[in-house]
Every structure is written in structure tokens, then in C-alpha cells.
Nucleic acid binder design. Structure first.
Lengths: 186, 186, 186, 186
DNA sequence: TATGAATGAGTGTTCATTCAT
DNA sequence: GATGAATGAACACTCATTCAT
């Protein structure tokens, strides 16, 4: 059901998608759909939940233990590729999450923070390993930046994917992330 | 009218806001509303247009000519403050722009690119001045990053504004932007 | 004003025509239009009234006095040509008269009866002259038939005007009216 | 549904009848009405279609084979009685058919021509049988006249049904149709 | 006097949700 | 359980009519 709903939301947005369409795409009757959900909004919640699950499961492969700059770069590379793979899903979530009820939204945001937390861990390991010397606040914001830069590839695709291939994007972003502007002083 | 609509869209989103509410918020009757617009979507377009106009007019103050790293930092500082000021508006646009018709969307995206262009110019001036040595592709992506980091402050406020004051955010982001991770090697 | 309204009603019908369109077609502002009428329906009444007036004024030329079969035929010929001339107007009245208020309708129907009355008179003169021997009921129905056959040319134009020219129509109808089926027994 | 709609259209016309009224008259909710139709105009089409079907089914009883003047008279008699029976329906169709879409109208007109065709056949049989000697153009127009005279009984009821009973109308019309004016020369 | 901005009741239509079968 | 016919609240939009200027 979720797969079908994602396609529909991607195509027409949450509000323009009818419950009938969701049921049809899932191969259910409308009556059966309402055995699984109580509200149309539940579908959105399930969709968001499923997307986060996909993202998280794909990110499991990321090595958070080694704590070297190389493994950090590999982690970023991996994450960006996952975001490329799931860009439709991520775009949907970005645009529709606000339609979640006041109850469901914090739950979803919590999951996001968990994912940001993965990058925090990755960076912290580097600090513990003595490869980096960043304070907590810098670590957290850096993690958020990496996280958003991954999503950016999807939600600003209209601007980015015209100019860069995924490989170029990963390479340049990683470079800018590491070198900063100061790395390019004349 | 636009002001009222922004508040409503912020509160309930475009789809959950009725034309009657928009009219009421604007202080006129539903009939009069339709003297000014042809379609509910026109309101969204006017809202987006007005937001961009506000952003752009506030960014006019930015000095794009000097071409020094200091003026670049000042530009970023100014932009982030503008984004803080207009964070509601920017959030609305982020979430609702996808509801624009196929005709209006490119027009809005075009305006975004113009704004990204301002940062590109700012950075290019530094290169021309011999303060930086960045190639075209890096300049463009850097500009996009700065642009998105400004918007981030608004659309991820639930995560960021709990941890950082605006001043802290500006300071740390600027620092990370310039120093990069390499700036923190042990 | 009436001229413009007739064109509009012909094109889109009474209900689909807006008062704004009527005003514009008349060269008035909407405010001024409402100086002349109290209700949209008044326009319809004025239109119907004007159409009957046109028909009647054109029929004045008909010679009702002579009381010969030849003058009867000439009268029919003349009437059919008037109906051809005013077929748009007549069609409009046919289709929209039912939208007249309960007050205005009888007034309009009265005018129709007056016109039927002209043919009654024409036929009666022939009887008085000793050219025909028809009773009252036959005279009245004959007059109605002639009247309707004239309108038919307009309101069934989609069927009739593909098959007959006006001249043919007049000739054959007159012939059938006079000869009847019995005139064609083998 | 069609029955209820006919009553309403008769009473107030198509445009003044709301979909809610149609639904109520049909005994279902507005939502259910829209399970059966896609557009209000569909109701009009269904109404027109159903009326023609009623007329045609009732006319099946007409004997088109015998080809005698007596059977022609019986046919006319039968048709006039059907028109009396369905005069409300016929009146509605006369007044509202113009509101049909450009797609549906020809379909309805086609059905009318089929019915006119029945009278043509009836008359032709008489010719083939050697009872009459009428050319094609006269046959066609005669058929149209009979057809319209049947409808007249309904759409000019305000004038005719005050003066004549149905029996009188049938008798006199048939007589005028057969004898013509010439049958009443002194 | 002539205007046209303003009004808001009313319309066709949609769609989330229920519930008898 | 599974279905889908039925519901009706809610919506975007129109337009006859008014009235301050």
C-alpha cells in the first residue's frame, strides 16, 4: 500500500490524491483500506514512517565505528547515494510532512534526529580518535549540514541535477565540506 | 491580502485554507476576492511572488561590489538575518510551491536562481579580486549551499532554533563554510 | 440594448448570459443597465416584446381586407418570409419564453394570439366573400397551423433548411395546406 | 431519477433546477446522484434520451405496413394520443434540448429524424400501394408537419387545449391534413 | 446622473468516511 | 472478512443586484 501511495503522492501530492486512488493502487477496495487505517492522514504517517525505515535500513551499511576521515568521507558518499536512490520518497516527505497531525509530526521529526545522530556519531568517533578537534555545537551543525546537503540533491534537483552528475555532486560537496573556502585562498 | 494569506498558509497550509478564509483575512468578501484573482492558485502565486520580492528587496542592501572575504561574510550575515526575519514566509513557500501550476512554477524557480546568482556574484568578485581561487562549478555549488543554509534556519527551525541563537548559527555556519573540516584537524 | 441581448441569447441562451454581458453589449455600465430594468428577467420581457413588435410591424403590410384565396396565399407567403427574416429572434423566444415570470408570460402569449388572429381574419374574409366554407373551429386551427408552420421554418431549421430553400418551403407548404392529402389521390 | 427530473424541469426549467433537487426527487443523496452522472447536463441527456425511448416504444404499436389511407389516419390518431400522454415530457424536451452539449445534441436530433421517418414510411407505403401520388419532397414535409402537429398539442396547449378536446383536435387536424383548404371551396 | 466595486447567497461537484450486505 | 454504494459536509467559484461615489 505504501509503495503505491508514495507514487501517487509524488505525482499529485497528498491532498490531490484520493483515498480511492490509494486503495486502488494498493489493490484493495476502499472498504478494506479503512480496515488498515482510520484516517487518510494515517496513510501519510505510514508513508513517512516507511520512507524513514528505508533510509535507515540503507544507512545501516555505513561504518560508524572506524572513526577516520576516510570512513567519514565514505559515510557521506554512501548517504548521498542513498538520497539519490530515494529522492522521490524524500521529496514527498519534505513536501507533505507538514500535513501530518500534531501527534504524528514529532514522531517523524524524532526519526530525522536519529539519522542526523548517525553523522554526529561518525564525526565524534573522528574526534575521539584524535583525527579532528570539533566542539559539540560544531559537530551537531556539521551533521545537520551533511544531512540537508543529501536531501538537497533531491529537493533541489531542478537546479542541481542539471549542472552536476551525482559523482560530481558528491565530490565537490565533500571537498567544500572538508576544505571550506579557506582551502581556496590565493 | 497576501499578508493574510501567508499567515493562513503558515497555519494550515494552502490546501486546508479556504478561499473564504483568505477573503476574510484580507478584509473583503469572497466576491471581492475574486475581483483580484481568477483562481485560488493565483493567491499562492501572488504569495510566492511577494515573498521573493520581499527577500530580494531586503537583499538589495547587500554589497556585491567590494569583492573581499569580509564583504562576503557580511553578505552571508545579512542574508541569514533576512531569512530569520522572513522565516514564516520562506517556510510557506518551501512547503506550498509544489502546488503552483506548471505555468507558474518555472517563473518562481527562476527567481530563486536569481537570488542564488547574487551569491555567485559575491564569490566571483572575490576571485576576480585575487582573494579566492575557485572554479565555476565550486562557486555555483557554494552559492547554493549558502542559499540553502539560510532557508534551513527557517525550515528546520524545530531542530536548529532549539540549539542555537541566530548569532550562534551565523557564526558557526560561517566558520564551517570558511574553515571546512580540514580547519579542525588535530 | 434589446438588439445586443437578442444576439447574446441566441448565442448562449438566457441563463448563460450574464447581466454584465448584456450591459456591455448595450454599451452601458452595469449600473446604468439597472436604471432601465429591475431584474434580469425584465431584459427577457423586453426582448420578447420587441420581437413581437418587429413581427407585427412587418406583418402590417399583409392585406387582410381583400378576402380572396390569392390574397390568403400572398399573406402566407409574406408571413413565411418574415419568419425567415426573424428566425433567430423567433428561435430565442421559443426557447426562452418559459423563463418569463408568471406575470409577463400571459402578456406575451396574448400577443401571439393577436398574430394568430390576423390569419383568422384573413381566412374569415374569404368565408364572408363566399370563397370558402369553413366553420369557426376549423378556421382557428388552420390559423394556428399556418402560424406554427412559419415558426417551424426557424425552430426546425436544422432539418428543414438542409432540404428546402425558402421558396420551395413556401410553395410546398402552401400546396399541402390547400390541396391536402386528398389532392393527391391516385 | 429521470421521472423526477422531468417533473422538476417541467416546473422550473433545467437551469433553475438544482442538482440537489434532482437528487432529492430521485430519492437519493447528492453524492449518490453523482455516482450515476458526471455532470448536471448528463441528467438532461438522460431525460431527453428516455423521453425519445418512451415515445418510440409507444409508437411501435403503429402499423406501418398496410399502406392504406385508413391505416395512415390510424397512425396519426395513435401518434397524437401518444403525444397527449407524454406532453409534459415533450414540452420539456422542446424547451431544454438547446442546453445539451454540442456532443449530445446531434444524437438527440438524430432520434427525432428517425421518428419523422416513421411517418415518411407510412406515407410511402400508401404511395407504393397506389393510394397516393406524392413526390419525395412532399412526403418528407408532410411527415414533418404531422410530427410537429403532434408536438404542437403539447407545446401550445395553453392555446389549443382551451378550445379543443383531444378528440376534436385529432379529428379536425386529420381532416385539414387530408382535405386541405381546397376541400372547403364553396 | 452614471459608474463599477463590493456583496454573499447559491451552484455544481468532490471525496473522506461509514456500514449494510 | 471484504466490499462498494451511499452519504453529506465542504469547497471553489459565479453572478444578479446594490449603493457609495
Amino acid at each position: 500500500m505504501v509503495r503505491g501511495a508514495v507514487s501517487l503522492f509524488k505525482l499529485k501530492g497528498f491532498h490531490r490524491t484520493t483515498t480511492r486512488e490509494i486503495a486502488k493502487a494498493a489493490g484493495f477496495s476502499i472498504g478494506t483500506l479503512y480496515e488498515y487505517i482510520r484516517t487518510k492522514e494515517d496513510v501519510l504517517y505510514l508513508v513517512c514512517d516507511s520512507i524513514y525505515e528505508q533510509v535507515r535500513s540503507q544507512l545501516q551499511a555505513m561504518d560508524t565505528e572506524q572513526g577516520t576521515l576516510v570512513s567519514l568521507k565514505l559515510g557521506i558518499d554512501h548517504y548521498f547515494r542513498v538520497m539519490d536512490d530515494l529522492q522521490d520518497e524524500v521529496l514527498v516527505m519534505y513536501q507533505e510532512a507538514k500535513s501530518l497531525s500534531k501527534d504524528a509530526l514529532p514522531y517523524v521529526l524524532q526519526k530525522e534526529l536519529e539519522m542526523v545522530g548517525m553523522f554526529e556519531t561518525l564525526i565524534k568517533r573522528c574526534c575521539e580518535n584524535g583525527e579532528l578537534a570539533l566542539d559539540e555545537t560544531r559537530i551537531h551543525l556539521l551533521a545537520q549540514n551533511i544531512f540537508v546537503q543529501g536531501q538537497m540533491w533531491g529537493f533541489r534537483r531542478w537546479a542541481l541535477q542539471k549542472k552536476y552528475t551525482l559523482e560530481e555532486y558528491i565530490e565537490i560537496q565533500t571537498d567544500l565540506l572538508f576544505s571550506g573556502i579557506n582551502g581556496y585562498l590565493e
